[in-house]
Simulated assay, not measured.
Amino acid sequence: MHSHAEHGNENPELIQNEAMMLQKIEYIHHNPVKRGYVDQAVHWRYSSARNYEG
């Protein structure tokens, strides 16, 4: 497991608008897919991606 410091992302980023919030949510949802744990974000057991399907 990696910490934020290992990736150079030590400073929290202020979410300034709805578009930025949606981008962050998409990033979080895509992480298990990116790491190869699941084929689709909605298949990740701990993901809220199912709540955002449209």
Rank of each mutant, 00 (worst) to 15 (best):
G8H: 02
N31A: 04
I25V: 05
S3V: 05
M21H: 12
R35F: 15
R45N: 14
Y37R: 03
K24F: 11
A5L: 05
Y37N: 08
H29S: 02
E10L: 10
H4F: 11
M21S: 12
I15R: 02
P12W: 09
H7I: 11
L22A: 06
Q16I: 14
E10G: 12
S47Y: 02
A5G: 02
N31S: 07
D39N: 06
M1Q: 03
Q16R: 15
P32T: 08
I28A: 12
S47N: 07
W44C: 15
H29D: 06
S47F: 00
L22H: 06
H7S: 13
A41S: 06
S48G: 07
P32V: 07
R45E: 15
I28H: 02
V33R: 03
N17S: 13
N9W: 04
I25K: 03
N11H: 11
Y46E: 13
V38Y: 07
D39T: 13
A41L: 00
E6N: 08
N9C: 09
A19K: 14
H30L: 04
S48V: 01
R35Y: 07
E13D: 14
K34C: 00
H4S: 09
E10K: 11
N11I: 13
A5S: 15
Q23I: 11
R45Q: 10
S47H: 03
S47R: 04
E10T: 10
E53C: 10
H2P: 00
I15Q: 00
H4D: 03
H30F: 10
A19N: 09
N11R: 14
E6G: 09
E10W: 01
H7L: 12
V33I: 05
E10D: 13
E13T: 14
H43C: 02
Q23K: 14
L22E: 12
E53S: 05
M21T: 04
I28W: 03
H7M: 14
N51D: 13
Y37Q: 07
P12H: 07
W44G: 06
Q16D: 13
K24C: 10
Y46W: 14
M21F: 12
